[in-house]
Each structure stands twice: as structure tokens, then as C-alpha cells.
Amino acid sequence: MKKEKDPCNTNNCFLCRHSLPAWLPAVAANKTNLDFKRGVTIFEEGMPVNGIYFIFRGKVKVHKKWGSEKQFILHFAKEGDVLGYRGLGNEQLYPVSATTLENTMLCFFDIPFFENSLKVNTNLLYAFMQLYASELQQVEKRMGSLVHLDVKGRVAETLLKLQTDFGVTDEGIIQIWLTKQELAAYAGTTYETFFRILHELVQSGIVQYSGKNMVIVNEAKLKALL
């Protein structure tokens, strides 16, 4: 990790977008831009909360421990998203970990400044409440999927959600590149099971997979598995 001097894009930053114009000089004076290489842990589950992170560019996986050596990926964050807000509260400990999936730049603010920003900017406070509500809805939906969908359905849901969240290239390739272990951790299954089901989907002509490139060939058939 290293500190950078690149200015943030006020159209992209969650904090800047929802703050009063008069508050933006304070934002510029209190931010720290941090540059992370791929595969670096930004913060770890159980660590004391030191601040809030806003993604300027890059992609990040947010995950929890699953047993002694495995992880369960809760969601993926991209440019414009917020990290670290799950650690706000009485305990002031991060309940999740965040790890970069590619070279990533973050804007960091300590807790006192962020709390002052919420008090000063009512639009920011409202947007943050909506963020929490949306996150809760997504978590409840994912927990429901883990309970009610079989493994093939969860794999199908994983691929469809990644396509919705990150879009595709002109060739139809989903624009996030993950290992099979990461895909399995997001689907809530083992690597071996995920690999077997993905192979079945490829053999059926529903999905194409090469290296880390994924293409949904027949979306209707994939949705039919849900």
C-alpha cells in the first residue's frame, strides 16, 4: 500500500456526491488516497475500525471466515462503492474483511471526520441510511438463496448477479475476473462442487468459461435453474 496524491473524482465519490458544495474543501483536506496492489487485505475481520474507505477505482471482495481455512464472500465492491461502514457501531470492530481483486485506489477518512460529515450533510446521512437498508435487503436475499436454492441454483444466481453488477464486454465477457475458488466462496459451496457444476453448464452450452473469462450464452436456461 502507498499513499497517492491523485485527486478524487467528485462525480464518482459517494461522500462528495452527497455533501454540500461548501463541505467539499473539508473533504479534500481530510482525505487520504491509498493505492493497493491486487490481493492485498485492506482491513481484516476483528480489527479495530480506523475509518471509512471509498473506492476511487478498482474492485474489492468483502468476505467472512468460513471454518478454519475457507472464506464466504458476501459481496463485491467496485468504483464508487463504500467499504468499512459495517464496522460502525458500539463494538468498533470490522465484522468482515476486504481484499483487493485488482490494483485499487481508495479514499480514506477517519471516523471523527466521517461522523461530522454525517451531522453536517443531511443528504449524505439519508444516502447512508439507504445504503444500509439496501445492504440489509441484499443480505436477506442471499441468506434466502443459501437456504432455498440447491447448489446448481446458487451457481446460476452467482453468474447472473455478476453479469448484472459488472456488465459485459462487447464479446459478452463478464467484467470481473475471479478464480474458481472465489466464485465458489461467493456461491457458498466448495471448489470441487463449483467446478463440477460449472463444467456441466459449459457442456450444456449455457455458459462459456476460459481462463477467468465467463460468458453467459443462454441466460434463459440459466435463470430456469433458480
Results as ranks from 00 to 15, higher is better:
K221N: 09
G172W: 11
V207H: 04
T189F: 02
G87W: 04
V40K: 14
L201T: 01
V217P: 00
N33F: 01
F72T: 11
M143H: 15
G84K: 02
N11Y: 08
I42N: 05
R57C: 04
L226Q: 14
H199Y: 04
L34A: 05
L74Q: 09
K119Q: 12
A184V: 10
D110L: 00
K119T: 04
A184E: 09
A22V: 13
M47P: 00
P25D: 13
Q208N: 13
K223N: 05
T190W: 03
Y191H: 15
F114P: 03
A77D: 02
S117L: 06
E45Q: 15
V202T: 11
T193M: 11
L93C: 09
V27P: 05
P21R: 09
M143N: 15
H75G: 02
A29L: 15
L106P: 01
V27L: 15
G211S: 08
V155F: 12
I42V: 15
G67Y: 01
F109I: 07
A98T: 01
G80E: 01
E182A: 14
I42L: 08
R86I: 02
V49P: 00
F195R: 15
N9F: 01
Q175A: 11
E79L: 01
A98S: 10
M214F: 14
F56R: 13
K221F: 00
K212H: 12
L198R: 03
P25Y: 13
I42H: 07
H148C: 07
T100K: 03
F76M: 06
I206E: 03
G211Q: 05
N116T: 09
K5E: 13
Q92I: 00
W66H: 11
E135Q: 08
S204M: 07
E171T: 15
